[in-house]
């Protein structure tokens, strides 16, 4: 399995994925900063306000779309030329292929979060001159967001595996994110967590008090999010591996 992951890392060289990793979170940061400046209301509650303005919106749509684009980029190369036949004509098992693809998609999603955190810190210090550094609770929340991205990465990787189209899985992600947001808005929390799009949005709201969140960063609640994320990931990866193994090439 490590060999398959290392091979995927080689494929990331000169990949467009890095541009997505860099620009998507920076766009979210810039949008949050510009909105704050235009509204004329400085972040009253310091880092907390800035985090909420940038990360909550980012978690509703851009994050799902970004992970979807990354998964499509990761699979796109396999749908070209004779690559699919070669991929399925080697000893690497379907499970290893799916795990490797999900791992790199999730790693890129983690890189998105890292860029976002750096962006928030830079904006907070340089634009708003906030005191101190980003409170550690948001670093903990970031870890939860990264974990919540795992099932999203697994689902989008699976969709991009099944669909040759680059855009179709991204469209599915946008539709899924809409449903997830509606569920969170209507505070139907349990089903929203079982939908990877809802889960990732919910994770970005932890500690902000937005939507169904109570504003605290409590371990039991985080534990539930992490447990659901891991269980969903295992199920989605296993499902994708079975589908890949059963599928005939075109």
């Amino acid at each position: 399995m490590m060999g398959a992951i290392r091979a995927e890392l080689v494929k990331l060289r000169r990949s467009l994925s890095w541009a997505v990793v860099l620009f998507l979170p920076l766009m979210a940061v810039v949008t949050g900063v510009v909105n704050t400046l235009v509204s004329g209301q400085p972040p009253g509650d310091g880092w907390h306000t800035l985090w909420m303005r940038i990360v909550v919106f980012y978690g509703l749509f851009p994050l799902a779309a970004g992970v979807a684009v990354l998964a499509s980029l990761v699979w796109r190369v396999e749908h070209r030329g004779g690559n699919w036949n070669a991929l399925m004509g080697r000893v690497t098992s379907s499970l290893d292929i799916v795990v490797a693809k999900t791992t790199v998609t999730a790693a890129l999603a983690a890189a998105l979060q890292a860029v976002l955190v750096v962006g928030v810190i830079v904006a907070g210090k340089l634009v708003f001159d906030l005191p101190g550094l980003l409170p550690p609770r948001y670093l903990a929340v970031s870890v939860v967001i990264v974990v919540a991205c795992l099932p999203l990465a697994a689902l989008q990787s699976g969709l991009s595996m099944l669909m040759r189209s680059f855009a179709a899985p991204v469209a599915v992600a946008l539709a899924g994110a809409t449903v997830g947001t509606l569920l969170l808005l209507t505070r139907v929390e349990a089903p929203s967590l079982l939908l990877p799009y809802g889960l990732v949005s919910r994770a970005t709201q932890v500690g902000t008090g937005a939507f169904a969140d109570d504003g605290s960063v409590a371990l039991p609640a985080l534990g539930v999010l992490v447990a659901v994320a891991l269980a969903l990931t295992v199920a989605l990866v296993a499902g994708a591996a079975v589908l890949l193994d059963r599928r005939d090439v075109r």
Binding site: K11, R13, R14, V77, R80, G81, N83, N85, A86
Partner: peptide
Amino acid sequence: APPAYGHL
């Protein structure tokens, strides 16, 4: 078609 990743 021959396999291979064009960007590599």
